[in-house]
């Protein structure tokens, strides 16, 4: 990959929670349009890593540069990064006091300063894209988990981010609903969005990912293309993980 087209540059990243060394010497470069799946056992630091990218977590050592903005204590840079990075959470985190349409237009109106009507049109466009325009006037509490997660994706997409982060987007869903969310994510991948996805959905990983990263105990143990990763894993830890996750 061409060095100049990297939209995320992470170098020598270290982070501690108290005394616990949660991320150790992480180096990662993500190019425009690249789709990266991050997997690993729980507690391996994979969620923390992508949460560092939009500074929901602060790192203590190393550099994170997103789209030319380095994440430091400078609030302006943090705002600039958050405008370019969308995030989808495991627990959806829709705003329960606002209806679906208002969830999508809130940041457009207050951050992007878009007129209300224009924001609503844009939001409806994205609700069509995640296939739930008919739910626009409902409140999140009235939707199924899968529908809520698709709204959450639409809410992020409305901001027209360059990068989308997914933090275990299907882990809180019933099996029937996982597919509807993954379908939306596959569609999104086909549009050329830069995506970092923390997930255990290996089918999705092999179908969509350009790179799979396997993390354990705060380290990137293995980083490879899906074919190599599944067919020819290098480290024993990866083999063990894959045997456990694919044994069912």
């Amino acid at each position: 990959m061409n060095e100049n087209s990297a939209v995320i540059e992470i170098s020598d990243l270290n982070k501690w929670f108290g005394n616990f060394h949660v991320l150790r010497d992480i180096n990662l470069s993500v190019s425009q349009g690249e789709r990266i799946v991050i997997c690993g056992p729980s507690g391996s630091g994979k969620s923390t890593l992508i949460r560092c990218i939009n500074r929901l977590e602060e790192h203590q050592e190393g550099r994170i540069v997103v789209d030319g903005n380095e994440l430091t204590h400078d609030l302006k840079n943090i705002d600039a990064v958050r405008r370019e990075v969308g995030m989808v959470f495991q627990s959806f985190n829709l705003f329960p006091h606002l209806n679906v349409l208002e969830n999508c237009t809130l940041a457009l109106i207050w951050v992007r300063k878009m007129p209300k009507l224009e924001a609503e049109n844009l939001a409806m466009e994205y609700l069509h894209r995640v296939k739930i325009p008919e739910q626009a006037q409902k409140f999140p509490g009235q939707l199924s988990g899968g529908q809520q997660q698709r709204v959450a994706i639409a809410r992020s997409l409305c901001m027209r981010p360059k990068i989308m982060l997914f933090d275990e987007p299907t882990s809180a869903l019933d099996p029937e609903m996982i597919k509807e969310v993954l379908d939306v994510m596959v569609d999104l991948a086909e549009t050329g969005m830069t995506m970092l996805v923390v997930t255990h959905e290996m089918g999705f990983a092999s179908q969509v990912a350009d790179q799979i990263i396997f993390m354990d105990e705060g380290l990137i143990v293995e980083q490879n293309t899906p074919e190599e990763f599944f067919n020819n894993p290098k480290s024993d830890r990866t083999k063990l993980f894959l045997s456990q996750i694919l044994s069912h």
Partner: peptide, 21 residues
């Protein structure tokens, strides 16, 4: 829930707007 603060931060609402909205 903490997720509400995080979601508000992630869509780019700053502290005051997150609080108010």
């Amino acid at each position: 829930p903490n997720g509400q603060y995080e979601a508000a931060q992630a869509v780019g609402l700053g502290y005051w707007r997150s609080m108010r909205l």
